[in-house]
Amino acid sequence: MMRLLLTVTVLLVASACNNDAQTTATSPSPVVQATLQTEFYADTLQPGDLRFYSFSVPSDSTASAMLGSIVRLDGRVDASQRIGLGFGYPSGTTCTVTQWVVTTSGLTAQLKGWLTKGVHCVAIYDPGGMTVPLNFAVRFEHFF
């Protein structure tokens, strides 16, 4: 690591000392060793409610979320029920949603978004129209 740092330093000095037209030295961009992480979030959503799960991303990057299942408390799958799925940021006691989709459950990502470096949340909420509590399961992928 020290040898690499020394090499970068020497290259930068050599570059900056070039008396040609290029006199501006540019710093190397920091390399973030980001790894794609898959997380799962399952809970019960009450009518009119919002549930959320917080996570951090180390740099601006893409993320996706898949609402895999919506099941009534009696165990019946509710394939026609549409609920809200979104990305946002934790604020107070909730998640302020900034990117969202209203969708039924499925086995492909319904939401793909762009997240800036920092703390975010994935939210599942009643967009209006829910009459009974529903169990949900979300799989989401983000860099960490």
Binding site: T9, V13, A16, C17, S27
Partner: peptide
């Protein structure tokens, strides 16, 4: 690192 670069070049560039 920028400080190192600047000091090394003062002899070549005003």
């Amino acid at each position: 690192m920028s400080v190192v670069t600047s000091a090394a070049c003062t002899g070549d560039r005003k």
